[in-house]
Simulated assay, not measured.
Amino acid sequence: MTRAPDGGKTTRQLFREGMRDGTPIALGYLVVSFTLGITAHNAGLDALQGFIASFFNLASAGEYAAFTVIAADAPYWEMAAITLVANARYMLMSCVLSQKFSPATPFYHRLGVGFGVTDEIFGISISRQGFLQPAYNYGAMALAVPVWALGTSLGIVAGDVLPPSLLSALSVALYGMFIAIIIPPGKENKIVLGLVFISFAMSFLAANLPLVSELSGSSRTIILTLLISGAAAWRFPLREVAEEDS
């Protein structure tokens, strides 16, 4: 049992703490990934394919985009591009988490923790005091990652047995999840709220205007994401406030 420099806690204790904090995350993931499984079922994936896709993606928006591209029979480059755009924030989260590790942390541990970076796991990890220990993240991932993948498989299996009317209702739940993600920051920041409505309007226009509407849905999403996020970053940059020494 290896000692870890986290208040004298052992690796096993840190792993258990990660599992404890990861339990509510895993329960939430089961519900969300189940609705993603409905989308994967509509795209023609079986339970095993859905499990593998979710296990190695771990991103609701990224997976939804990928499953939508698969359903549209779009080319691989579109799937790669839209998944990269949808999941780009995880690269930034990984960079932040890398600053929480001790300089002596081996690269393979950094790589392992990076594999399991999600919004929720990032949240519980960044709130830890002192250096971040990989054992804690592995504990959280040990539950959250397989449960996320399992939920997708269960959604696909449900798609084979549930009536179409119920499947249609369950599919709407995923859109409800996305709305729940954008409403809280929109209430706190009017700029974010404005950008959300601009995105709605531009998406509608892109789907109906000549020439642009002839592009696939995933291509329009990639173009609009890059244009709107780039313009927002240029027009409304976040200013870092330097902390004054007391």
Rank of each mutant, 00 (worst) to 15 (best):
T23K: 10
G8L: 09
E78N: 00
I191S: 06
L45C: 00
T10P: 03
A206P: 01
I191F: 07
Y108C: 11
A142G: 03
G112Y: 02
A74G: 14
G130K: 07
V196E: 06
E188A: 15
S246W: 15
Q133M: 11
A231M: 12
S125C: 10
F204A: 14
A72H: 05
G217R: 13
R235A: 14
L170K: 03
D73I: 05
G18A: 07
G7K: 09
I183Q: 07
F67I: 06
A59N: 13
L209E: 04
L238C: 11
A40K: 00
I222Q: 05
G28S: 05
E240M: 13
Y90T: 01
P164T: 10
Q129A: 13
E214M: 11
K187A: 12
M93C: 07
G112Q: 00
Q49D: 01
Y108I: 10
D46G: 13
Y64C: 09
G130D: 06
S125Y: 01
I121L: 15
L150I: 08
P24F: 04
A40C: 00
A81M: 14
L227P: 07
T225V: 06
N57H: 03
V85R: 08
I25L: 13
T221L: 15
A86V: 12
A207N: 10
I191N: 09
D245A: 13
R12A: 15
S216N: 04
G116Y: 05
Q49Y: 00
P237N: 13
S171G: 15
F56L: 15
H41R: 11
A206W: 04
N57D: 04
I191D: 04
L97G: 02
I82N: 05
P210M: 07
A169F: 13
A40V: 00
R128Y: 06
S94I: 03
S165A: 14
M1A: 09
A88T: 11
A158C: 07
